[in-house]
Amino acid sequence: MEEVKTFQDIILTLQQFWSKQGCMLMQSYDTEKGAGTMSPYTFLRAIGPEPWNAAYVEPSRRPADGRYGKNPNRLYQHHQFQVVMKPSPKNIQELYIDSLKALGIDPLKHDIRFVEDNWENPSLGCAGLGWEVWLDGMEVTQFTYFQQVGGLEVDSVTSELTYGLERLASYIQDVNSVYDIEWAPGVKYGEIFKHPEYEHSVYSFENSDTAFLFNQFSAFEKEALKQIEKNLVHPAYDYVLKCSHAFNLLDARGAVSATDRPDYLKRIRHMARLIAKAFLQERAKLSFPLLKDSEAKKWVEKYGIKEEK
């Protein structure tokens, strides 16, 4: 086995590994988001009875975590490698451990631990049970069995693995700062991302136009609600993601008071719930195409809209 070293080696290895397990290799979704879970390839596909196996890299923006490129561990934008398998395979833990082995991590020489961590994303109405996976004490992966998505109890449980690629890479390459990670042979993470990190931090903490962002939030929200009414699930969801990012920017700027904060989150959650319901209906109208016909029938009966006579 060739040694997995660079950041891109890690991505390639994980892609290869999971595609062999039957995951479709999707691409990063092109709207800003705070976590791979928010990609429609996870959030929407976790809803309803249809199977879904996918893996993708998701650049994740968290404005409040920006540190001007100075903190060795915290970033405005980090990269997640997201794996979702639905229904959760019985051997998902073993598959995960095998993926670490593929990265050259020998479990016998390390301490790999599954430590309880129940995950919740209140703004999307999502909750799940699972673990953070520790590699020699470092949390390298969030491992979750989804129980609720968009406020709906799941029909089929999605197992979600979210690898923190920077942490994994800094561990594998044995560097103390993310900026010292080798992305490709001869090119360091810092050489690509340090400057954008600095600029985004300045923007998020000092320069963003809060009035503009507040307006954006409201405008995106209005547009999302309008599209939800027409059952245009995907365009509506894009605007929810944009709302969420606008909110995160405002939050980083300290522009949202503690009193208003729950209200903004509630507004996002409200839209996410509507979208979850609408998505389920739209899939039912299509007779849940990813299910076998025989299985689809009972679900269409459960969720399909009865045709009016």
């Binding site: 020489k109 390390h110 590699l135 020699d136 103390n176």
Partner: peptide, 20 residues
Amino acid sequence: KGLDHVRKGNEKVLDARLAD
């Protein structure tokens, strides 16, 4: 077995936590 790896890994994690 591999206790040195484990030690080093844990030291690194703690260092990041304490740096924070």
